[in-house]
Design a binder for these strands. Structure first.
Lengths: 205, 205
DNA sequence: GTTATAATTAACTAAATGGTTAGTTAGGAG
DNA sequence: CTCCTAACTAACCATTTAGTTAATTATAAC
């Protein structure tokens, strides 16, 4: 039983722990010791495999964004019509965010920090996802089914609404007695996706 | 010249410094020493006036959210028709966020942290702003000019899009050579507000 | 002017932090 | 069996951190 030494297992457990903790408390809110403890490895292993805390954070964010990008990209390729692609974009993103709530934290955090945190091209991941939507909107425009619009605004409507909805799950639950139905605890993420699709298509049709 | 001792000036300079630094680097990313230095006061003054770092943060967030709430509320009272109130809500929020960019950071951060950071009713401010939109949408529904909708989704569309647009200003500028017109650097915040209003009203009409 | 009190400071502490290092052990290649 | 190297560890270090404290000064009231 090769349980004793296994580089891959160690590396992966570090990533899993770091993803979990960074998503919960942010880069500055987590100590390297805490990550090592959560991962069940010696702290020096983090430096051995990932050089330092910042680099580890970059790897985590890159992985998270790359994964959502690939997921959306793959689902999108299954559709032909721009309007179907648009729905697929929204729905896939929404479902993914629901299944992987850490995504919302990282996206909101990276976007909110405005490139101050890590000067690298960490935003490549964000740009790639945005690029998918740009292509959909441009194609629709060319084919005459969409009116001209501002992709960045549409993009921020979609990812803003979905990420905020996901990341405020507990928050909304805690105030439901005061605000009642308005905070929409019974809402499924599918409903958010449908509203977004509905409002946006009406806007660009 | 009462320049030597002035409790109000000290208290205010601490708030100003704390607002600036917390908005830039987040709660965990700023040290109390840094705030004291920025404010030009002795560190012990922070504890003298605000008890500790967390309490100071609460005061800052409360002030920021209370100010935007009052601003939106006041502008809103100048309109009668729900549709005008809706536009006023979006426009006022957008203009305020543009003029006070730290708002976007705090809102995104507080919403993204999902109530984990500070267990207090820090979210009262967030709820109050949301409450304004709920009233507008409900009134419009009652008067028959709006269809039934989910206020929380509309709210997250608005504040999500505006806050992300504001907080990514530098980020968008830094990638404009690659993504060109799509990132909409030439966009004014008014344009974002108009798009939001346009898409939402089409959705709920 | 005296005095009480509010405003302010420098120096300090204990704990936590990111990061290092020197050494140890496991396991596959020869 | 023996090495060599990759995987791993415990102990350590310098710095930074939030928070405290005891002493000091300005000032307003009397």
């Amino acid at each position: 039983m090769g349980e004793i030494r296994d580089a891959n297992r160690s590396k992966k457990s570090i990533i899993v722990a770091a993803t979990k903790l960074f998503a919960k408390d942010g880069f500055d809110g987590v100590s390297v010791d805490a990550i090592a403890k959560e991962a069940g490895v010696n702290k020096a292993m983090l430096y051995y495999y990932y050089k330092n805390k910042s680099k580890l954070y970059e790897v985590v964010v890159d992985m998270v964004l790359e994964d959502i990008y690939k997921t959306v990209l793959e689902k999108n390729s299954q559709h032909k019509k721009p309007i179907d692609k648009l729905y697929s974009f929204i729905e896939t993103f929404a479902k993914y965010a629901k299944a992987n709530p850490h995504l919302s934290f990282f996206m909101l955090n990276e976007l909110a920090s405005d490139g101050k945190k890590l000067p690298r091209d960490m935003f490549l991941g964000l740009r790639k996802i945005f690029g998918l939507l740009v292509d959909i909107l441009k194609e629709g425009e060319k084919k005459g089914c969409f009116k001209k619009t501002k992709p960045i605004i549409v993009h921020f409507m979609i990812v803003g609404a979905i990420n905020l909805f996901i990341s405020t799950k507990n928050l909304r639950k805690s105030v439901e007695d005061e605000l009642g139905a308005e905070v929409c605890n019974e809402c499924k993420i599918d409903e958010v996706a449908r509203y977004l699709y509905d409002y946006i298509t009406k806007g660009i049709s």
